[in-house]
Amino acid sequence: MVMGLPAHPLLVHFAIVLLLLAAGAQVLAVAVPRFRRWFDWGMPLLAGAGAVSGRVAQSYGEILMGTGGGSQALVEHQQWGAQAGLAGLVLGGLSILHWVVTSERGRSRWAARWPGWVGTGLGVLAALVAVWTVVVVTLAGHSGATSVWGG
């Protein structure tokens, strides 16, 4: 509880913003190499923060779900929220790996001997996961709003 309010609705908005920004930045990092160079270490930082905040929001949602209520709308929201939490973790991991393989800093320290196709493959996979993340975060948010406000 934060000032008498459940923490989940407060934290989830932070997670939504970070996950959607990370997803958009990942797609840009794959599609526009100049953006990847410009954003540099911001990409793994944003993706990691999105993954952590998504998992924290999911944890507080599970706590809130345990306090009572079990309507069909809440169950649906919980299912979409679990997928959104997983999508955020996968996106975070792939974005960090993609950065390691494609950034000058990452290649010089960790991935110098990896073939070039690894970066391309990770980029495509990360971009697909970014799209999946946007879809499940949107569906989780919609089902959460529906469970609270009806509709």
Results as ranks from 00 to 15, higher is better:
residue 4 G to C: 11
residue 4 G to Q: 13
residue 6 P to V: 00
residue 7 A to W: 01
residue 8 H to Q: 10
residue 9 P to M: 00
residue 12 V to Y: 13
residue 14 F to R: 03
residue 16 I to L: 15
residue 16 I to T: 09
residue 16 I to R: 15
residue 17 V to G: 13
residue 18 L to Q: 08
residue 22 A to M: 13
residue 23 A to C: 09
residue 23 A to E: 04
residue 25 A to V: 00
residue 27 V to E: 12
residue 30 V to E: 09
residue 30 V to F: 15
residue 31 A to V: 04
residue 32 V to F: 15
residue 32 V to W: 15
residue 35 F to Q: 05
residue 36 R to D: 08
residue 38 W to Y: 12
residue 38 W to I: 08
residue 39 F to W: 15
residue 40 D to W: 11
residue 40 D to N: 12
residue 43 M to H: 14
residue 44 P to V: 00
residue 48 G to P: 02
residue 49 A to L: 12
residue 49 A to I: 00
residue 50 G to C: 14
residue 52 V to H: 06
residue 52 V to Q: 10
residue 55 R to A: 14
residue 56 V to C: 11
residue 59 S to R: 08
residue 59 S to L: 14
residue 61 G to K: 10
residue 62 E to Q: 10
residue 63 I to F: 13
residue 71 S to H: 09
residue 71 S to M: 14
residue 73 A to W: 05
residue 79 Q to W: 08
residue 79 Q to T: 01
residue 84 A to L: 06
residue 86 L to M: 05
residue 87 A to K: 01
residue 87 A to F: 11
residue 88 G to V: 04
residue 89 L to S: 12
residue 90 V to H: 13
residue 90 V to Q: 10
residue 91 L to P: 08
residue 95 S to V: 07
residue 97 L to D: 01
residue 97 L to A: 11
residue 98 H to Y: 12
residue 102 T to G: 09
residue 102 T to C: 08
residue 102 T to P: 04
residue 106 G to C: 01
residue 110 W to H: 04
residue 111 A to T: 10
residue 112 A to V: 07
residue 113 R to Y: 07
residue 115 P to A: 09
residue 115 P to Y: 07
residue 117 W to F: 10
residue 119 G to W: 07
residue 119 G to L: 13
residue 120 T to G: 05
residue 120 T to H: 06
residue 122 L to P: 00
residue 124 V to C: 12
residue 125 L to I: 15
residue 125 L to G: 05
residue 127 A to H: 15
residue 133 T to N: 01
residue 137 V to A: 10
residue 138 T to W: 15
residue 139 L to I: 06
residue 140 A to E: 06
residue 140 A to M: 06
residue 142 H to T: 07
residue 143 S to M: 05
residue 143 S to F: 09
residue 143 S to L: 07
residue 145 A to N: 08
residue 146 T to R: 07
residue 148 V to R: 04
residue 150 G to M: 02
residue 151 G to T: 07
